[in-house]
């Protein structure tokens, strides 16, 4: 038994380049299996269903017998008057969310990192990520009440605005702002966790050295902390780019109304109305496929550029 480590070591010495230690790592591979199987079943197998995007799908005929209509559903999506509008709405809302959703957690975690009072730090951390666990159905109701013409916010606004309320959720421009702000408020705390973890991993000796060289907190943040967490920022940014066409169905669906269709109707709410309410499965699938293809291209691009410009690679 005691010899075992020795033998292992010898093997390592004999074959220093390979990392595949079948005998030693078998437990790890076995643990990998459920993940792989689940991915296959739930992520790859359903891709077969994409064929209905090219069919006039009828549930009782199934994927094999439904009529083929080639690109009709894609054509229908782009021939609509409002399709450009909907795609723009989606891009504007989601890119605002992505940008703010990246910057605010970074700034917040940098600030939190400077706090030396541990109890305060932990309390704040817990408080800011709590909203993440609320559902949009509940938050939607609360927001509608808060922002209504006789709501709390408007009782302040009226004092500044000559007694006139602002109809936040009935005005397209305000609607976008509300959607972005409320989403950031809900999610930034949760996003902070990753960055705080990265910050905890920065080698303290770097800071000590910098202090010896006479760098203040600000210089340390700029020259040590930010470069140290840059790879994480790139990963989070790259991964979130794949969601550029997801502007947040739950949230918008619970807040929107016909008055803000022109500024707030996004691809997902549109798919819900056509696909689920009106029973156009094929059409909804076509739109979903379009979204996925764009998302895939964006991730690939972002990954490629992060490799090229930030020298960051996962694979």
């Amino acid at each position: 038994m005691e010899n075992q480590p020795l033998i292992e070591q010898q093997k390592v010495i004999r074959q220093p380049k390979t990392h595949f230690k079948w005998g030693k790592n078998i437990a790890l591979y076995v643990m990998l299996i459920p993940g792989i199987v689940l991915t296959l079943i739930f992520s790859y197998l359903p891709m077969g269903g994409l064929v209905i995007a090219f069919q006039d799908y009828k549930p009782w005929l199934g994927m094999l017998k439904s009529n083929w209509v080639q690109w009709d559903h894609f054509a229908m999506m782009f021939l609509r008057d409002d399709s450009v509008q909907i795609i723009w709405n989606t891009l504007i809302i989601s890119s605002a969310k992505l940008t703010a959703g990246l910057i605010i957690p970074i700034v917040f975690s940098l600030l939190l990192n400077e706090v030396r009072q541990l109890f305060f730090k932990k309390t704040v951390q817990t408080l800011v990520y709590l909203p993440h666990f609320l559902s949009w159905v509940i938050l939607g109701g609360i927001l509608t009440d808060l922002l209504s013409s006789s709501g709390l916010i408007n009782s302040w606004v009226e004092k500044l605005n000559h007694g006139k309320p602002i109809l936040f959720l009935a005005d397209g421009d305000w609607f976008r702002i509300i959607v972005v702000i409320s989403d950031i408020w809900k999610e930034f705390g949760f996003a902070t966790i990753v960055f705080l973890a990265a910050l905890a991993g920065v080698n303290p000796s770097l800071y000590e050295a910098a202090e010896v060289d006479g760098a203040g907190r600000w210089k340390q943040t700029l020259n040590i902390t930010l470069p140290a967490i840059a790879p994480i920022i790139v990963v989070v940014g790259t991964l979130s780019l794949g969601n550029i066409l997801n502007a947040g169905f739950d949230q918008i669906f619970n807040l929107y109304n016909p008055l803000v269709y022109s500024k707030g109707d996004i691809i997902d709410t549109f798919v819900y109305r056509t696909g689920i309410i009106s029973g156009g499965f094929s059409f909804a699938t076509a739109v979903g496929m379009f979204k996925s293809v764009i998302g895939f291209i964006l991730i690939a691009l972002a990954y490629w550029s992060s490799g090229k410009f930030a020298n960051y690679r996962i694979f």
């Binding site: 609509r80 409002d82 016909p258 022109s262 109707d265 109305r273 056509t274 009106s278 029973g279 156009g280």
Partner: peptide, 14 residues
């Protein structure tokens, strides 16, 4: 109605 119903309803509501 199946194909255009949603589009018609949307412009009406708006």
């Amino acid at each position: 109605l199946l194909e255009k119903g949603e589009a018609l309803k949307k412009i009406e509501g708006e």
